[in-house]
Amino acid sequence: MAHIDYYLGTISPWCYLAGNRLEEIAARHGAQITYKPLDLLQLFDRTGGIRPADRHASRMEYRAQELPRWAAHLGMPLNLKPAHWPVNMAPSSYAIIAAQAAGGGDLGGLVQAILRAVWADQRDISDDAVIRDLLGASGFDPALADKGLFVGAETYGRNLEEAVQAGAFGAPFYVVRETDQRFWGQDRLDFLDRHLAQA
Rank of each mutant, 00 (worst) to 15 (best):
G105W: 00
G105Q: 13
G105I: 13
L107G: 12
L107R: 05
L107D: 00
G108C: 09
G109D: 00
G109S: 02
L110H: 03
L110V: 10
L110Q: 08
L110S: 01
V111R: 15
V111K: 15
V111W: 05
Q112S: 05
A113W: 01
A113G: 03
I114C: 05
L115G: 03
L115N: 12
L115A: 04
A117L: 11
A117H: 02
A117T: 03
V118I: 13
V118H: 01
W119R: 06
W119Q: 06
D121Q: 13
D121G: 01
D121K: 07
Q122H: 06
Q122G: 05
R123V: 06
R123C: 04
D124H: 03
D124L: 00
D124T: 08
I125V: 15
I125A: 11
I125E: 07
S126A: 15
S126F: 02
S126C: 12
S126R: 02
D127C: 06
D128I: 14
A129K: 09
A129F: 06
V130C: 15
I131L: 15
I131D: 09
R132W: 01
R132S: 12
D133C: 11
D133N: 13
D133H: 06
L134T: 02
L134V: 06
L134A: 06
G136Y: 08
G136E: 13
A137H: 10
S138I: 14
S138E: 04
S138W: 03
G139H: 13
G139M: 00
G139Y: 10
F140S: 08
F140N: 08
F140I: 13
D141T: 12
D141C: 15
D141W: 14
D141R: 09
P142F: 07
L144C: 07
L144Q: 06
L144V: 11
A145R: 03
A145E: 09
D146K: 09
D146G: 01
D146P: 03
K147L: 14
K147N: 12
K147D: 12
G148D: 12
G148C: 14
G148V: 13
L149E: 15
L149S: 01
L149F: 01
L149C: 00
F150D: 14
G152Y: 13
G152V: 06
G152P: 02
G152T: 09
E154K: 05
E154H: 11
E154R: 15
T155K: 07
Y156E: 03
G157F: 00
G157T: 05
G157W: 00
R158M: 14
N159A: 08
N159E: 14
L160P: 03
L160I: 11
E161F: 06
E161Q: 13
E161Y: 00
E161H: 08
E161C: 02
E162K: 11
E162P: 05
A163K: 10
A163L: 04
A163C: 07
V164A: 02
A166D: 13
G167Q: 09
G167S: 12
G167I: 13
A168E: 02
A168C: 10
A168R: 01
G170F: 14
G170N: 09
G170Q: 01
G170W: 03
A171D: 07
P172R: 11
P172K: 07
P172A: 11
P172Y: 14
F173H: 07
F173K: 00
F173L: 14
F173P: 00
Y174Q: 02
Y174K: 00
V175E: 04
V175P: 01
V175T: 09
V176W: 03
V176K: 09
V176R: 12
R177L: 09
E178F: 04
E178W: 04
